[in-house]
Computed example of a mutant assay.
Amino acid sequence: MTDPLHHDIIGRGPVLLLMPGGAGHPMGLGPLTERLARRFTVVTYDPLGLAHGRLGLPVAEQRVAHWSEGAHRVLEQVLPPGERAYAFGSSSGGIAVLDLLARHPGRLAHVVAHEPPCVTLLPDGARRRQELIDGLDGPGRPPAEGPTATPMGVFLAHVLRPFTAWTPRFTTDRLTVAAGSASRGQLLHDTARRVADHLRSPFVEYPGGHLGVLDHPDAYATLLSDTFLPGTA
C-alpha cells in the first residue's frame, strides 16, 4: 500500500512542481503559486500531508528518497504523456528536487534548487553540518514537546538530520542552483556554490535570504519563469 499523495494544483500551462522547505508544509507559498499560475500548472507537493490534516499525527524519520519518489508519483498523475515538468525546491525541498532529478531525469525539463543544505560537500562538511544542527536544534536547547505539533517541530525531529547528510552524485545540464543575495557569507550560500560546482551547474542569486521565496514572491515568480520559459514573456 502506498502513501496518499498530498498536493494542490492551480493554474494552466506547463507543469511546475514546487517542493517546500522545512517539513514540506507549503505555508506562505500562496503569493508565489498565484503568480506562477499565470503561466504554469503549479503542483505544490506536501510530502507529509501537514497541510492536509496530518499535522500533529505521528511522523517517522524521513528520507530524501521518500520525498522524491512521492513527487515522482505525483508527476506521473498530472503530467501529460511524453511531457516533462519543471521543478523548484528550496532548502530541504531543494534536496528533494535534486534527488528527483537524479532518479527520474526523463520526467524533468529543468530544476532550480535554492540553498539545498548539502553541507557534507564542503571541505569541512562534517563539522559544518554539526554546527548547523546545533544552531537549529542543539545543544542545551530543551527538547520540544509534541515534536509533531508544528511544522518546525517535525523538521527538527525528523527531517534536519537525514536530509543534511544527503550528498548529490550526478551531473546534468538541466539544473540551476540558487542562493539568496542576503545569504552571502553564510553557510548555505557557500553550500549552494559548492553544489553548483560539484554538479557543474549554473549558480545564480535570488533576492533575500534563505526564506526569500516567502519574502519576494514577485521576484521569484519572474526569475523562475525566465529560467524555465525564457523569451516567452
Rank of each mutant, 00 (worst) to 15 (best):
39 R>G: 11
41 T>H: 07
42 V>N: 09
42 V>Y: 05
43 V>R: 03
44 T>R: 01
45 Y>A: 15
46 D>F: 01
49 G>A: 03
50 L>T: 04
50 L>A: 10
52 H>L: 06
53 G>D: 11
56 G>R: 03
60 A>H: 15
60 A>L: 00
60 A>T: 07
61 E>W: 02
61 E>M: 07
65 A>Y: 03
65 A>I: 02
66 H>S: 08
66 H>G: 09
67 W>K: 03
67 W>S: 05
68 S>E: 06
68 S>D: 15
70 G>W: 02
71 A>H: 05
72 H>D: 13
73 R>K: 12
75 L>K: 06
76 E>H: 08
79 L>R: 07
80 P>N: 11
81 P>Y: 03
81 P>H: 08
88 F>W: 11
88 F>E: 10
89 G>D: 07
90 S>D: 11
91 S>G: 15
91 S>Y: 01
91 S>E: 07
92 S>Q: 09
94 G>E: 11
97 V>I: 12
97 V>D: 05
98 L>H: 05
98 L>Y: 05
98 L>K: 09
100 L>H: 14
100 L>E: 14
103 R>A: 14
103 R>H: 13
104 H>D: 05
104 H>F: 15
105 P>I: 11
106 G>I: 15
108 L>N: 07
108 L>Q: 15
109 A>Q: 12
110 H>F: 10
110 H>A: 13
112 V>D: 10
119 V>E: 10
120 T>I: 00
120 T>E: 07
121 L>M: 09
121 L>P: 04
121 L>W: 14
122 L>C: 13
122 L>G: 07
122 L>T: 00
123 P>R: 02
125 G>V: 00
126 A>N: 12
128 R>E: 14
128 R>C: 12
128 R>V: 11
129 R>T: 09
130 Q>L: 14
130 Q>A: 15
130 Q>D: 15
133 I>W: 08
134 D>Y: 06
134 D>N: 12
135 G>L: 09
136 L>D: 05
136 L>E: 11
137 D>K: 04
137 D>P: 04
138 G>T: 14
138 G>N: 08
139 P>F: 12
140 G>Y: 12
140 G>Q: 09
141 R>A: 08
142 P>G: 15
142 P>T: 06
146 G>Q: 08
148 T>F: 08
148 T>D: 15
149 A>P: 01
151 P>S: 11
151 P>L: 10
152 M>E: 14
156 L>C: 01
157 A>R: 04
157 A>F: 03
160 L>C: 02
